[in-house]
Design a protein around this nucleic acid. Structure first.
Lengths: 130, 130
DNA sequence: TAGAATCAACGAAGAGTTTCGTAGTTGACG
DNA sequence: CGTCAACTACGAAACTCTTCGTTGATTCTA
C-alpha cells in the first residue's frame, strides 16, 4: 500500500514506464514497438526481461490472463516524477526544491505560455499560504 | 575543454563532490571526516578509491605536489547541477523543464522568501524576452 | 495437421558501482 | 636509526544494470 517500497526506476525501466503511462497498459510487443520509434534499438527479449524484473520489484503489475501478458504501472507518473525530483533535490540541491526550480528556470528557456503557467502556480501556492 | 565528456557523477561520487564544492578543494582525509558527519559510515579507502576513479573519469583534478593529494572539482556545482537537471528533464519530463518546475513547486512547500526569489527570476526571464 | 510465428522464462555475459582489506611508501620523532 | 602513523595504490568481492541468445510452450495458418 505504501509507495515507499517501490524502488526508483532505472533509466531503462523509466523508458519502458513512459510507454506504459502513455498507453495505460501494454504488452511487451506494444512496448517494444513503441520504443523502436525512438533512437535506441532494444531487443524484444531485453524489454521482456526488464519488465520481468520490474514485476519482481513491484514497479509494474502483470495481467497473465492472456497469452501476451499485459503490464500496468503500479505508481502514477505524477507520483514517480515526484520521487525522482525529491531524490535529485536531496542528492544535489541540499534539499532545497527552490534551488532546483531556479536551476531549471535558468537552464531552459520557457515560452511565455509556460511562464504564465508557472506564475499561476506561484499564485496558487501563495494563496494557500495566507 | 568541453564539459560534455565529463560523465554524470554517481550517487557516491556526488556526495564527495558536494564536500569538495563546499571546501573548494580537499584531501581524502578532509573529505572522509566531512562525510562522517552525515549518516553513512564510509571507509577511508572507499573514499580514496572513488576519488581515484573520479580522477580517471576527469570529474576531479588531483594536485600531487604534497604527500596528501589535494582534489578539486573540474566542473562547477552550478554546471553539474544543470546537467543533472537536464538529464532528469529528458528522462522523466519529456524534455519540459517547465513540467519539472511545476512538479518541484507542487511537491515541496517553499517559504514566502523563496517564492519571492522565484518570482524575481520569472520577471527577469520575462524581461529578457521582450 | 504440420510448420511457422509468437510468446514467456531462463541463464549468462559484460560493464559499472561500491565496498574494503592488504601492501608498500613516505615522513615524523623519540 | 628504527618505529609508528599517515598516505597512496592495487585488487578483489559483492552487487546491480543491461543486454541478448536459447529453449520450450502456445497459437495461428496454409
Amino acid at each position: 500500500m505504501t509507495p515507499r517500497d517501490v524502488p526508483r526506476p532505472t533509466d531503462a525501466e523509466l523508458a519502458i514506464l513512459r510507454v506504459i503511462w502513455r498507453l495505460g497498459s501494454a504488452t511487451v510487443r506494444e512496448i517494444h514497438d513503441a520504443l523502436l520509434q525512438d533512437q535506441p534499438k532494444t531487443g524484444y527479449t531485453t524489454v521482456l526481461k526488464i519488465l520481468q524484473i520490474m514485476t519482481d520489484k513491484g514497479i509494474v503489475v502483470r495481467d497473465e490472463s492472456q497469452r501476451a501478458h499485459v503490464y500496468a504501472a503500479k505508481e502514477s507518473e505524477q507520483s514517480t516524477r515526484g520521487r525522482l525530483v525529491r531524490h535529485l533535490v536531496d542528492r544535489a540541491f541540499d534539499g532545497s526544491a527552490t534551488a532546483l526550480v531556479m536551476q531549471a528556470l535558468s537552464t531552459k528557456k520557457a515560452s511565455p505560455n509556460e511562464l504564465a503557467t508557472i506564475r499561476a502556480m506561484l499564485e496558487k501556492i501563495e494563496g494557500e499560504r495566507r
